[in-house]
């Protein structure tokens, strides 16, 4: 089963290496990992999608927590959460295909962010499933390039900032 973990960590050199090295060394099956700034200066926020049974995921969370630079780890899989991914899709777009691609993009509330002579670049934000379906529909046109960010997640509601939302 897929689990979503959110980890907060100190924004210091080598911390990403510590995390990825841990996953590799313990042979954890990580599907995606995204990292960026959080609302607190000096603290990065990482969203990790991991495949495995509850025991494996619990191990991942506990081993992550053991890293000195990691300040908090929460499994949000069972919590109501906003889950999003962003993808940039460059599609081959000959004369006849353009309007059709743009229509598809509209249906998915995706944006065309670049128009080239022979291609269109579409930006889509949504759940992985939504991104998957658009990709599936665009595939027949020919996808030239694809960049997906991987999942980011945030627990819904609450008003006390991260600490309140991320109570395990």
């Amino acid at each position: 089963m897929r689990h979503t973990l959110i980890a907060l960590m100190e924004d210091k050199p080598g911390v990403l290496n510590r995390v990825s090295s841990l996953f590799r060394r313990r042979n954890y099956n990580i599907e995606s990992l995204t990292v960026g700034h959080s609302e607190t200066p000096g603290i990065s926020r990482m969203t990790i999608v991991v495949n495995g049974d509850d025991r494996i995921v619990q191990q991942v969370a506990r081993q992550l927590s053991k890293l000195i630079n990691v300040t908090q780890v929460v499994d949000v899989s069972d919590k109501p959460a906003v889950i999003r991914e962003l993808a940039l899709i460059k599609v081959r777009a000959g004369h006849g295909a353009r309007s059709e691609i743009m229509e598809l993009a509209n249906v998915f509330r995706a944006k065309v962010v670049d128009v080239g002579k022979t291609s269109l670049t579409v930006e889509i934000t949504g759940t992985e499933e939504k991104v998957d379906s658009l990709i599936g529909l665009l595939q027949p046109f020919g996808i030239e390039e694809l960049a997906r960010t991987g999942r980011v997640a945030m627990v819904r509601g609450g008003n006390g900032g991260q600490a309140a939302n991320l109570q395990p």
């Binding site: 191990q59 506990r62 927590s65």
Partner: peptide
């Protein structure tokens, strides 16, 4: 003392 040892090798 190490929570990561719980259920690691043996449940």
């Amino acid at each position: 003392v190490d929570p990561a040892e719980i259920d690691k090798n043996v449940a």
